[in-house]
C-alpha cells in the first residue's frame, strides 16, 4: 500500500484501478452514494413548485435546475461505480433506508419563497461544502464535483434573485421571503454536519485527502459570505447573536440546536417518509419504461444477430 501513501503524501490523485485501502474505498462509496442520493432526492422539494411557478420564465428556470439535480446524481453514481459498486445496488440501498441522503431535503417547501431560500441558502451551503471536493484525492469524485460546482452557481443565483424580487415586492411578498429565510437558515447551517468535536470520521477523511476543511471551518465560511448577502436582500437572518467580530475577522453566531439534526437523520424530520415514498413510487412507476427499453434493445440485438448469421 506504499504507492497509495506516496500518492497522498504527494497530493496526487487516486484513480479507479489503483491499489487503495478497503476503508478508503468504503468511505468513498458511502460518501459519494449519499451525495448522489441527495441530488436525486433534492429534486422533490423544488419539483413541488414547478407546476405553480409564478411565471413561464421562473418555470423554465426551475425545470432546468431540477433537471441539473438529476444530472448531478448521475455524475456521482458514475463516479461511485468506478469503485466497483453497482448503481442499481446503490439505489436499492437508498430505497430500503440502508444509505442516507442529506437531511436538508426532509424539510417541506411551503411557499414559492422556499424555492428562493433553497437556491440561495441550501445550494449556497452545498457549494461551500463542494468546492473543496473538487480537490478530493479520488480523481473521479473530484472531476464530477468540478462539473457539479460549475452548475450549482446558477442555482444559487436564481434563488437569490427570487428572494430579491420578493423582498422588493409587496409587504406580503416580503414577509413570505423573510419567513422562508427564517425556516431555512438553521437547517442550512446543519448541512455542514456536527461540530468538529462530534464528527468521528472527519479526521480520517482529512488524512485521506477526501475532506480538505473541517465542518466548523466550512460553516464559518458560509456564514461569513451569507451575512452581507442577506443585507443586500434587505432580509434578516434569525440569529440574534450574529455580529461581526473584528478580532477574529469572522461573524460570531449563536449555538446550533443539533438535536434537531439528529432527529431528522433518525427519520423524524417533517418529510422523511414522504420523500422516500415518493422516490420509491417514482422508481416503480418508471419500471415499464426500463423494461420497454430493455425489450427493444434485446429485439434489435437479436435481429442484428440473425442478419449476421
Amino acid at each position: 500500500m506504499s504507492s497509495f501513501e506516496d500518492l497522498l503524501a504527494d497530493d496526487g490523485r487516486v484513480e479507479p484501478r489503483d491499489e487503495m485501502p478497503d476503508d478508503y474505498r468504503r468511505t468513498l462509496v458511502r460518501q459519494i452514494a449519499q451525495h448522489a442520493h441527495s441530488e436525486i432526492i433534492g429534486m422533490q422539494p423544488e419539483g413541488n413548485w414547478i407546476s405553480r411557478a409564478p411565471s413561464l420564465r421562473r418555470k423554465a428556470i426551475l425545470m432546468a435546475k431540477v433537471q441539473d439535480e438529476a444530472g448531478h446524481g448521475l455524475y456521482l453514481y458514475a463516479a461511485a461505480e468506478t469503485l466497483g459498486v453497482d448503481r442499481e445496488d446503490l439505489l436499492d440501498q437508498l430505497h430500503t433506508g440502508r444509505q442516507k441522503y442529506s437531511s436538508i431535503f426532509n424539510y417541506p417547501t411551503l411557499t414559492w419563497a422556499d424555492v428562493g431560500a433553497i437556491g440561495w441558502l441550501v445550494d449556497g451551503a452545498a457549494i461551500v461544502n463542494q468546492v473543496p471536493l473538487c480537490r478530493c484525492s479520488y480523481g473521479p469524485y473530484a472531476r464530477a464535483m468540478i462539473r457539479v460546482c460549475k452548475e450549482e452557481s446558477f442555482h444559487q443565483r436564481q434563488g437569490f434573485e427570487i428572494l430579491h424580487t420578493l423582498s422588493h415586492g409587496t409587504p406580503a411578498q416580503r414577509a413570505m421571503a423573510q419567513d422562508a429565510v427564517d425556516r431555512y437558515w438553521w437547517p442550512a447551517l446543519m448541512m455542514f454536519g456536527p461540530p468538529d468535536a462530534d464528527s468521528p470520521h472527519s479526521e480520517q477523511s482529512m488524512a485521506w485527502g477526501i475532506k480538505r476543511f473541517s465542518n466548523d471551518e466550512l460553516r464559518q465560511r458560509f456564514i461569513d459570505m451569507t451575512v452581507p448577502q442577506a443585507e443586500a436582500l434587505g432580509l434578516t437572518l434569525p440569529d440574534p447573536e450574529l455580529r461581526w467580530n473584528a478580532d477574529r475577522g469572522h461573524y460570531d453566531s449563536g449555538p446550533i440546536d443539533f438535536t434537531e439534526l439528529f432527529e431528522v437523520i433518525k427519520g423524524n424530520g417533517p418529510c422523511n417518509a414522504q420523500r422516500m415514498a415518493h422516490r420509491v413510487r417514482a422508481h416503480e412507476d418508471g419500471a415499464w419504461v426500463r423494461e420497454a427499453a430493455s425489450a427493444y434493445a434485446a429485439k434489435h440485438a437479436a435481429r442484428t444477430r440473425e442478419g449476421a448469421a
Partner: peptide, 22 residues
Amino acid sequence: VGSLHAPDAEMALRNARDVYTR
C-alpha cells in the same frame, strides 16, 4: 467526461446528450 448505463447504443447517445451536454 464520465459514464452511464443504457440498454443500447442509441439510448446511450441520447442519455449522454442529456447528462453531459446540457
